[in-house]
Amino acid sequence: MLLEVENVVKHFPITTGMLVKQTVGHVRAVDGVSFDLSPGETLGLVGETGCGKSTLARCVAGLHPVTSGRVRFDGDDITNLPRARMRAYRRDIQVIFQDPYGSLNPRRRVGSIIADPLVVHRVSRGAELRRTVQELMERVGLNPEHYNRFPAEFSGGQRQRIGVARALALRPRLIICDEPVSALDVSIQAQILNLLKDLQDDFGLTYLFIAHDLSVVRHISDRIAVMYLGKVVELAGADELHEHPRHPYTNALLSATAVADPDEAGRRRRIILTGDVPSPIDPPSGCHFHPRCPKARDRCSAEEPLLVPRDHLVACHFPVEAGEDLTASGRRPA
């Protein structure tokens, strides 16, 4: 295994008080997540806003200390390593961020932004550095002559290519892609997805790929983990998850995913969930999904379901059976 994530928990304290800070509660952003990744594999991570995807990504990359749990990279325990010792792993684990506008310093030239990791890790300098950066730019589809331009002179898609080039500079083994295409229009999104795929083939990269759009995740991933309020509720092969989703939330998410096909959209029987995602400060008891779940019963609010194998991994007391109808007409209202 290249990456092993074992029961990772990340809680942010909520404090009040001006002078003496008092902790009055916790945001349970990531609440016990486990998965692993083999070399060359892509694991997709989906879930709605605030469910903890980015926090999990930052924990894995060593950018946040974890509250508890373990992260292993290539067999080495890298959990909460001190900065100096984490440095060695930073070369191997890189992150591409969501926002192609916010993640690049607007006052620095693109060439030096991409060169950063090479300089910090003293990999190359001078004329060689410039050549390496220009090769990277070329590889991700940027014009190497634009070396001296500023981020504002690039479009959203091009800025995301800059982020990809920077992540690629140190020839990492694992790249964590945190919503790399969410801010892009569909035609540009497709360009970036193709680029990521090509780079994976060329360099044998392993991806942890975060998105909230299931069709994007299905396209790029080998396996998919679905998150809800800090927990993984289902984990399966990409096609398996789409064809035989067993968690009621995954079913709802799939039925809510827009399809660009009028006939299919007409046939589609949507599971309309009631309410919004609850707050991770005070998540519902038992199964976090129970206030919105069309299948919820008494046991669901009393006892938390564990992520256990039932065909594939699913955390639900009453998993959805093949052919079961979760739409309003198929069930009595809760």
Binding site: S155, Q191, N194
Partner: peptide, 12 residues
């Protein structure tokens, strides 16, 4: 799944 998409080249 996993095949190549056919993006529109360039940008607006």
């Amino acid at each position: 799944r996993g095949g190549r998409l056919r993006p529109i080249p360039g940008s607006p």
